[in-house]
């Protein structure tokens, strides 16, 4: 085929400086346990968890149009996987990896059930499924039943070292989660996912296997939430079923993604930082905290419907994770015919 191939660039205007800043930031974050007090790093663990679960929800809802309020199912599965594996002698840090695998494995059959539902029914259905997961797990006596369990296998680790390891674990899971989303969206499947986000019918007509694309997102999202659940239990050293399977997790994910900007990889990160700061600042404000959170949500939803990052992106074209294809030069040669012969 005598093809005229256009020159295509995948990196945005801002790629060079942002990747330098990003690398420096990452180095600082890795070195942080040596630089600051433990209470700083341990509070950052919850920020990293928020970034993970929000990124996963963004993948699901922002790209797949799958508005789930049941991702806590996989957070819980992940947490309990770490607990159960620790009983069997698997080190909890390794258990977190298995938590991701287990969550994805359970998400596969779950997807066949959940994908039968559409729109609102899907949202409610996923919530019900999460409740079913909780009800099944509290039936297992060895996992502590309704009152939960503590994590074994962490007693012989020095407390300071444990805090540092947990921090690095959370940071690692966050980096891998964001990188996975980036890698997914930059690859061939990324085009398909973006198309599904924008118009499912047209995506199908373009040849996209929409159900498969959605299933990939659902599995990846479950894996991320499973790892997040694992981090939570390693951090808290115990698991409590009502807390780990709480729908509050979904509320947080939705809040973060809507504030930060749905459908942008940067959105959940920005949203998670805002949410985390609000949490820190208003920790003592009691119920006023929720009132303020509500106000922020309403303000952003009405004033910046595309979220904080969406607004930045629209105004300055800034993109930390460029996934676009930019044609920089049209081919000089005569184009090939667009048909099979």
């Amino acid at each position: 085929m005598s093809a005229g191939v256009p020159a295509v660039s995948r990196s945005g205007r801002s790629t060079r400086p942002t990747s330098v800043v990003g690398a420096v930031l990452l180095l600082v974050l890795v070195a942080l346990p040596f630089l600051v007090y433990e209470d700083v790093t341990s509070s950052l663990v919850s920020l990293f968890v928020l970034i993970v679960i929000a990124s996963m929800w963004n993948l699901l809802a922002g790209f797949g149009g799958l508005v789930s309020v049941g991702q806590q199912a996989f957070i819980g599965v992940g947490a309990y996987t770490v607990v159960a594996l620790a009983d069997a002698g698997v080190p909890p840090y390794l258990g977190v990896l298995m938590a991701a695998v287990t969550a994805a494995a359970l998400a596969l059959p779950t997807s066949f059930l959940a994908f039968r539902l559409r729109g609102d029914y899907f949202a409610v259905g996923t919530w019900v499924i999460a409740e079913v997961y909780r009800l099944v797990l509290v039936k297992i006596d060895s996992l502590g039943g309704p009152s939960g369990r503590s994590l074994t296998g962490m007693n012989d680790v020095d407390a300071t070292m444990r805090a540092a390891f947990t921090y690095w674990l959370a940071l690692g899971v966050a980096v891998v989660s964001v990188a996975t989303c980036f890698w997914l969206l930059r690859g061939r499947i990324g085009l398909a996912l973006t198309a599904v986000r924008d118009d499912e019918v047209a995506a199908r007509a373009s040849g996209v296997d929409v159900t498969r694309a959605k299933r990939v997102m659902y599995l990846v999202s479950a894996a991320g939430c499973g790892a997040a659940g694992g981090v939570l239990v390693v951090d808290a050293l115990s698991v409590q079923p009502n807390a780990i399977f709480s729908v509050q997790w979904s509320a947080s994910m939705i809040f973060i993604v809507v504030i930060g900007g749905i459908g942008y990889l940067e959105g959940p990160i920005v949203g998670a930082i805002v949410y985390f700061l609000l949490q820190q600042v208003l920790a003592d404000a009691g119920s006023w905290y929720l009132v303020l959170l509500g106000c922020v949500a309403i303000l952003v939803a009405t004033r910046l419907p595309r979220g904080l990052w969406g607004t930045v992106h629209d105004r300055w074209g800034l993109s930390l994770f460029p996934v676009d294809y930019r044609v920089t030069r049209a081919p000089a040669a005569e184009p090939c015919p667009a048909v099979r012969t």
Binding site: T194, A195, D198, A202, V208, D324
Partner: peptide, 14 residues
């Protein structure tokens, strides 16, 4: 039915 957030090139590439 255009893909609102995709460029025309990304659309045909898809």
């Amino acid at each position: 039915r255009p893909f609102g957030g995709m460029t025309t090139f990304a659309t045909t590439l898809l």
